[in-house]
């Protein structure tokens, strides 16, 4: 692979939250500044992982889940996440359920939320042009290093090496949830069975935590999720059905 000529910015990939998180800073800032911004971003994401991981028994989430920590003792972040999860349970008619597995597991919101917070902090710190991808949940701002809007592919549900849709934008939160990644792992919390009908759901909005949770909820709803997505204010969507059809909002910023 030949490297194209150097352009401003910085890229970094780290393995956090059991997935790959990549940051693309496209601002022409001094290397030391970019490095510090990246450090700050990943430090935050690692901190979130330590506090919200359901895989480590002594994380704040697990201690709270076991009743060892009172709500009044919980961190501001944990309380905020719990509030949002409760709201989401309400808005999604119970299809987004942080207790779907039988114990507290807000992971379906935490990944997108933490990436959104990281992106907001980057903007506040003067990095107005960046792309943060947390395991397939994407937040883009401004322009890419190439000088144009960011181009975001949506993964083809039957072909991991390909994409089935290209979105472009300068201020988008894009989350895709599907049943391809770990088998039918999205459970319909009402029936307790794996959700069927929708192979992959992409939600586009301005808040990555919400977009991620909505996408997961819609997959759990099955075909009815399409109608639900249509009525969702402030969000656009694309859906691939189990039988291989692609439907999307007419206003979705699809690259021609």
């Amino acid at each position: 692979m030949t490297a194209p000529p150097a352009r401003p910015g910085l890229r970094r990939v780290e393995q956090i939250m059991g997935t790959a998180i990549s940051l693309d800073l496209a601002d022409d800032l001094p290397p030391a500044t970019l490095h510090e911004l990246a450090e700050e971003t990943f430090r935050w994401l690692r901190e979130v992982d330590a506090r919200f991981s359901t895989y480590s028994d002594d994380s704040e989430v697990c201690r709270f889940g076991r009743g060892e920590l009172l709500l009044s003792e919980a961190s501001v972040d944990l309380r905020r996440v719990l509030e949002r999860c409760a709201d989401l349970w309400d808005v999604t008619d119970g299809f987004f359920d942080a207790y779907a597995t039988g114990r507290l597991d807000p992971s379906g919101y935490v990944k997108g939320w933490s990436a959104q917070v990281a992106s907001d902090r980057l903007v506040a710190a003067g990095a107005a042009n960046h792309c943060l991808n947390a395991g397939g949940d994407v937040r883009v701002r401004g322009l890419s290093s190439a000088g144009g809007p960011w181009r975001i592919g949506v993964r083809h549900p039957w072909d991991p090496a390909s994409t089935c849709l290209v979105l472009t934008g300068t201020d988008l939160a894009v989350a895709t949830s599907g049943v391809y990644e770990r088998g039918h792992h999205v459970v319909d919390p009402r029936r307790g069975e794996p959700a069927k009908g929708l192979r992959s759901v992409t939600v586009v909005g301005s808040d990555l935590g919400l977009a991620d949770a909505y996408a997961t909820a819609a997959v759990a709803m099955g075909i009815a999720g399409i109608g639900w997505l249509d009525r969702l204010d402030g969000h656009l969507h694309a859906v691939v059905t189990d039988d291989g059809r692609l439907l999307h909002s007419t206003a979705l910023p699809v690259d021609a």
Partner: peptide
């Protein structure tokens, strides 16, 4: 987790969603 800065000139890094259960340790 290990940090690595890539020079931005390099080819696009598509982050493959990596293994479940790989890295959720107390990092």
């Amino acid at each position: 987790p290990v940090a690595q800065d890539l020079p931005a000139g390099q080819a696009t890094a598509t982050p493959g969603g990596a293994a479940p259960g790989g890295t959720s340790g107390p990092a």
